[in-house]
Amino acid sequence: MTRRHDIDALRAIAFTLLILYHLCMLYVSDWGWHIKSPHQGEWLQWPMLFLNRWRMDLIFLISGIASAFLINPDKVWNFVRSRTWRLFLPLLFGMLVIVPIQPYVQGVSNHLVEPGFGQFLVHYYSGQRWPEHAFDGWEHGFTWNHLWYLAYLWMYTLALALLAKPLASRFGQRLTAAFTGLRGARLLIYPALPLLLYTLVLQPLFPDNGDFIHDWYRNAAYFTVFVYGYLIARSDGFWAEALRLRRVSLTIALLLFVPYISMVALLPEDSPIWLADVLWVLRNFYIWTALLAILGWAHALLNKPFRWLPWATESVYPWYIFHQSLIVLLAYWLIPLKFGPVLEPLLVLAGTIAGCYLLSEGAKRVSWLRPCLGLKSLPKIRKEPIALETGSAQA
């Protein structure tokens, strides 16, 4: 099978945007986060909203594509075992070792946790009850923060293992062919309809709270695009149509974003329900057409064996695990030094890049650390080229 360089490259780009997005969370006004800089700007909300609407949908879509190349419907247990090792182990390691600096910084910044990281860890690992709103996840005593993606993806992987055999049946193949056979306007419209339905029905009942069990709106949306990725992965017809429609889908996405962002900015909170429904229609069709445009343009421009791609393919997972704790820690150190609105974010960005590079490159050389960061063992890496498993399905 021909290697899909565009999926590997798109995954690396998607997580690069995620890192930049989390850096901007330090500086965007009126959006709460673990720590905030005094140098905030309201203008950041607009480019971040442009990205925010589809950034995680894209990542789950890519994860679904990768899963299609990894799973054998006749051997789903092998898939479940492999994905558990590659997802659940890094989740546990990250929650125990990498993430705790984030609730510590947030708690100290809120003046609800006493300074002293060692003492904090003793209490954190012992399940101590924390002051109300000390940090995100205080009510549980711990948090997975940015690693929530790994938990959700692991659960979606288990669900996909149950669906793999039915989807491989004759009826399942007809359903797959009906979806991947969409062309023209039908491809631009139909896949957005379930996302719109979830927004209208589920979002008012299940607000985003990062709790998988009660997060039915996000689960419905993310699992749907995850399955979309699984269905389209091997469909040459879909990719040819996404390529053909790339200019149209990009134009439509941009045209939809303009009235959407205008309504977000101008509508009062007590607007009629029908106006809110119009807003949700614009948002969900913007999400899908943006995803379709990204897939089409990636297929056109990125399906090449770039020299940087093997390194990026292997590095993106540990960079994802490390980046947010580094951003939070660097901000905690730098904000009191008052470097100003230009130098401070540049230092946080440079420190995050340097920290991710040094930590990930060092961890790659430690055999027992590699599985904790979702990487293959050293002997397998030496004997085999990097597979799509490493490049497109993990966080």
Rank of each mutant, 00 (worst) to 15 (best):
Q106Y: 11
L153N: 13
L160C: 03
N145R: 15
S109M: 07
P131H: 15
F120A: 02
L112E: 08
F120P: 01
L153G: 03
H133P: 06
G141E: 13
F142W: 15
L147T: 03
T143D: 04
Q119A: 05
G141A: 13
Y156A: 01
N145E: 15
A164V: 00
M155P: 00
G107L: 06
M155G: 00
F120W: 06
E139L: 08
M155T: 06
L160A: 02
K165Q: 11
A161L: 07
Q106A: 08
E132T: 14
D136R: 11
T157L: 07
A159P: 06
A151V: 00
Q106W: 09
Q106I: 04
Y124D: 02
N110W: 09
V105S: 04
L162V: 11
H133C: 02
S126H: 14
Q106C: 03
D136C: 00
E139M: 08
E132V: 12
G127W: 11
R129P: 01
G118C: 02
A159G: 03
K165H: 10
W138Q: 04
L121Q: 03
L153Y: 10
L150P: 05
A134Q: 09
L158G: 03
Y124T: 08
L158Q: 10
H146E: 08
F117R: 08
G127L: 08
R129S: 11
H146K: 10
E139Q: 14
A161I: 08
R129F: 10
L153Q: 13
L147E: 02
L160S: 01
S109D: 13
D136T: 10
Y125Q: 13
W138G: 00
F117D: 04
L121H: 01
G137A: 01
R129T: 15
F117T: 05
A159E: 04
A164M: 02
Y149P: 00
H111R: 15
N110G: 05
R129Y: 10
A161K: 11
D136A: 03
G116W: 03
Q119L: 05
D136H: 08
Y104C: 12
Y104T: 12
W148K: 12
W130H: 11
L153M: 10
W138N: 00
Q119M: 02
K165D: 08
A151E: 09
L163Q: 03
W130Y: 15
Y156E: 10
A161F: 10
A134G: 03
L163S: 03
W144V: 14
T143A: 14
